[in-house]
């Protein structure tokens, strides 16, 4: 069994999601629920730290695509950080780097949010 885990912490008005393990069509509902809860709570500044994400399929990518427009309309963003080469390659194949803010680390994402 390939497990997936997501943990959320707050830094001021920024929510940081630490995702870990394998994000596929089976585990995606846990990730989707976490993002949905943030949106319902009107927390639109979101950083997803992927340092411990070992695998992502299109099911996981679809969650970003499903929420990003609504979040940006509310003045927020989903910033992606700490991607491994393997995970970045999947994002690249889909064309995500032109549409999403992909940054080397969490601190840089927080700095960018605070600069707005």
């Amino acid at each position: 069994m390939n497990d997936f885990n997501v943990r959320v912490t707050e830094k001021d008005d920024i929510s940081i999601l630490y995702v870990e393990g394998f994000l596929d069509a089976h585990t995606v509902s846990a990730f989707e629920s976490s993002i949905l809860k943030l949106v319902k709570d009107k927390k639109y500044k979101i950083v997803v730290n992927m340092q411990k994400l070992e695998y992502i399929s299109s099911a996981g990518l679809g969650v970003f695509m499903g929420f990003i427009e609504e979040i940006r309309e509310q003045g927020g963003d989903i910033k992606l950080t700490n991607l491994s080469d393997k995970v970045f390659r999947v994002f690249e194949l889909i064309g995500f780097p032109t549409l999403f803010d992909i940054l080397p680390d969490e601190e840089e994402a927080i700095t960018k949010f605070n600069a707005i």
Binding site: S58, G62, M65, G66, F67, V90, L93, I94, F96
Partner: peptide
């Protein structure tokens, strides 16, 4: 092939899996 901008605007991602298969 998926039109990412259109999918994002509509909040309806689709066709990503087949695009990935063809790319990989």
């Amino acid at each position: 092939p998926p039109d990412l901008k259109k999918s994002i605007m509509e909040g309806k991602p689709g066709g990503l899996g087949i695009h990935l298969m063809r790319s990989l």
